Amino acid sequence: MNKEIFKIDTKENADSTKNNMIRYINENTGDFLSISIDSIARKVGISVSSVSRFSQKMGFSSFKDLQLYVNEENIKKNQSYTINDGTTIEEIVKNITTYNSYTIKETSDILNNEEINKVTNEIISSKVVLIYGVGSSALAAQELNTNLKKTGINCAYFSDFHSILAILSTLSDDSLVILISSSLKSHEIKFIYDYCYKNKIKNLLITKDTTILEYEPSYKITFKTIDQKERYSSISSKTAQLFIADVIFNSVTNDFVKNKKELIKKTNDLISEWNETK
């Protein structure tokens, strides 16, 4: 994870007072938080008044406010994700909180907004959307399917391999297949993925690991998890997949609201008419 507090200002000279201060804060955060403004000025090689002006230039009313901000950011960026043995209820709660906190934070950091936008447009323009997931991945697949139906998307969810096989052969190049799997190692997932590739059917992979792929999918969204010591259920993978499913659904919904206001108005009018009959 990038632990920089501030980014170097590329519009200024590399050795400007501003960039020298930023570099010092990033590389010596502990010192910056523990020593006086006079000591910082000496270490950076500038005057005390220059340190004060830097604080104001960065948007803070005083040097002390700058230190408080740096301290808060330092705590966030150096947050540790420690998993204990989990023998008590308190430890179990802490572990599950850690798994989920790590997954959402780290996954949100690596999400590709441009890819999300492309997936959104593909879902909206596709004639049919098939969503496949088994085990814990089935939860995200089912949730995404249920939510997309609310926007009028023609989609279907499958957790049974033989059921989706019967539909695959009917798909054309204006269809989209969404595969949700942490590892992509199951024979069923590989078969569906290979079929889509060979028959030029657009596909989206939501997964943790794409290194085993022989060829690039149409779209891919990856997530991060902490490996569990004892895997009774995939805690963080399940959270990551549901998180991504919600991101996709909300992106589709935003586009739906923006481009289909008349349809939404008719729906709301119909709901109001129903409420008046009660």
Rank of each mutant, 00 (worst) to 15 (best):
M58Q: 15
M58Y: 02
G59W: 01
G59T: 02
F60H: 10
S61A: 12
S62R: 04
F63E: 10
F63C: 05
K64R: 05
K64I: 05
K64P: 00
K64G: 01
K64C: 01
K64H: 08
D65M: 04
L66T: 08
L66S: 04
L66G: 03
Q67F: 01
V70M: 03
V70W: 04
E72Q: 14
E73C: 08
E73M: 14
E73W: 01
N74Q: 02
N74P: 06
I75G: 00
K76S: 09
K76Y: 11
K77V: 03
K77A: 09
N78C: 08
N78I: 08
Q79Y: 07
Q79S: 11
S80L: 13
S80E: 15
S80W: 00
T82L: 13
I83F: 09
G86I: 04
T87A: 04
T88R: 05
T88W: 03
I89W: 03
E90S: 08
E91W: 00
E91Y: 00
E91P: 05
I92S: 09
I92P: 00
I92T: 05
I92L: 11
I92W: 01
I92R: 09
V93I: 15
K94D: 12
K94H: 11
I96Y: 14
I96W: 02
T98C: 14
Y99G: 07
Y99P: 01
N100F: 01
N100R: 04
N100Q: 13
S101Q: 10
T103F: 04
T103S: 15
T103H: 02
I104S: 06
E106Q: 12
E106H: 14
T107W: 04
T107H: 09
S108I: 02
D109Q: 12
L111R: 05
N112H: 07
E114L: 04
E114H: 06
I116H: 01
N117I: 07
K118C: 08
K118Y: 03
V119W: 06
V119L: 10
V119T: 06
N121H: 12
N121Y: 01
E122R: 15
E122H: 08
E122P: 00
I123H: 03
I124D: 07
I124V: 13
I124K: 12
S125V: 05
K127T: 12
V128T: 15
V129E: 05
L130R: 07
L130M: 13
Y132V: 09
Y132E: 09
Y132D: 06
G133R: 02
V134R: 06
V134W: 00
V134H: 03
G135V: 03
G135P: 07
S137R: 04
S137A: 09
S137V: 01
A138Q: 05
L139A: 07
A140E: 03
E143Y: 10
L144G: 09
N145P: 09
N145V: 01
T146L: 13
N147P: 06
N147E: 04
N147C: 07
L148F: 03
K149F: 01
K149L: 12
K150A: 12
T151N: 13
T151C: 12
G152S: 11
I153M: 11
C155P: 02
A156H: 15
A156D: 13
A156E: 15
D160K: 10
D160S: 14
D160F: 03
D160W: 00
H162A: 02
S163R: 11
I164M: 15
I164V: 14
L165Q: 14
L165M: 13
L165H: 10
L165E: 12
L165G: 02
A166N: 09
I167F: 10
I167V: 13
I167K: 11
